[in-house]
């Protein structure tokens, strides 16, 4: 038998190849399985567990009898202060995403269009630096800068000795500042990838047709980089809504966001079902926002004159 199968390929390669080749769906499945298997075990199952918890009066690990309930989903009604916190979180999310988009787009534009070769590589690595530093270190170093009498004040007083303090630690702008610092690289990278693929000739064509820089920016570069901007916005907005480290450290007393409230439910109050219910509610809100925005974006790009 082995001799037979070995001899056959030499005699008739097409037939033998068909016999040995795996069906294409098999290799696709084999390549995808590790990722999807990992996602299933590491993300999907815990998420399902959390979803189940959110409908219980208590976690099944305790001694109390477990009863099905929807009361955690009524938290926004029974505890109205949560609505305010959720709103604050969304506002912080919008500001962070907006600032990241503006700064990130122009930084990416400069990288993609004005630099080349080694300079570009170095600048890209510098952008990735925040990723290399520990998040906690990154956030705490901002407290040194922003606190009263911090580096920011020292800098100001060296120029204008009589001035008061401009330190704004424990305010909402401080939270946004810390979040922008942390999430800007995502936005720069997604915009950079979108912008670097734009052929120089397309910009030159626009110039030759009479377009100035403003027209090129709004009519050519922005629409063409929109997929990158959208991806960057999602990569920024979603984690920012759930963030709790930056609000807690840089926001102090004003730093109460959905992220910190949810974290408290798991680490302080040990009310996992409420924490889970709040998480899923915020997820629903975020998905609703994206659904609205994607519809608006599609219409605006499709119907552009």
């Amino acid at each position: 038998m082995p001799a037979d199968t070995l001899a056959r390929p030499a005699a008739s390669p097409p037939g033998a190849a068909a016999g040995h080749r795996l069906p294409s769906w098999f290799s696709t499945a084999a390549l995808l399985l590790p990722t999807y298997g990992w996602l299933l075990i590491a993300i999907f199952l815990p998420l399902c567990t959390m979803l189940a918890f959110s409908f219980m009066n208590a976690t099944p690990m305790g001694r109390a009898p477990v009863v099905f309930t929807l009361k955690h989903y009524k938290a926004f009604v029974t505890q109205p202060y949560l609505v305010g916190i959720a709103w604050d979180s969304l506002v912080i999310g919008f500001w962070t995403t907006f600032l990241c988009a503006v700064l990130g787009f122009f930084a990416a534009l400069a990288l993609a269009r004005a630099t080349a070769g080694r300079a570009r590589e170095t600048l890209l690595i510098l952008i990735l630096l925040p990723f290399w530093t520990n998040g906690l270190v990154r956030v705490f170093s901002w407290t040194m800068v922003l606190r009263e009498g911090g580096f920011l004040d020292v800098l100001l007083h060296s120029v204008w000795p009589g001035a008061g303090s401009i330190g704004f630690l424990y305010t909402r702008p401080a939270i946004v500042l810390g979040l922008v610092h942390g999430y800007l690289p995502y936005m720069i990278l997604t915009c950079y990838i979108a912008l670097v693929t734009i052929d120089d000739a397309i910009i030159e064509a626009a110039q030759s047709l009479g377009a100035r820089w403003w027209t090129i920016l709004t009519r050519v570069l922005l629409p063409m980089a929109l997929p990158g901007l959208t991806t960057g916005a999602i990569l920024t907005f979603v984690p920012v809504i759930g963030s709790f480290m930056e609000p807690r450290i840089l926001g102090g007393r004003v730093g109460v966001t959905m992220g910190t409230v949810i974290e408290d439910q798991f680490t302080q109050a040990f009310n996992w079902p409420l924490g889970a219910a709040l998480s899923f509610t915020m997820l629903a809100v975020i998905l609703a926002i994206f659904a609205t925005f994607s519809g608006v974006l599609r219409r605006s790009t499709g119907g552009m004159a």
Binding site: A201, E204, A205, P223, M224, L226, T301, M304
Partner: peptide, 8 residues
């Protein structure tokens, strides 16, 4: 040479 049409 590359046409350079606006793809969007």
């Amino acid at each position: 040479q590359s046409y350079a049409l606006f793809p969007h």
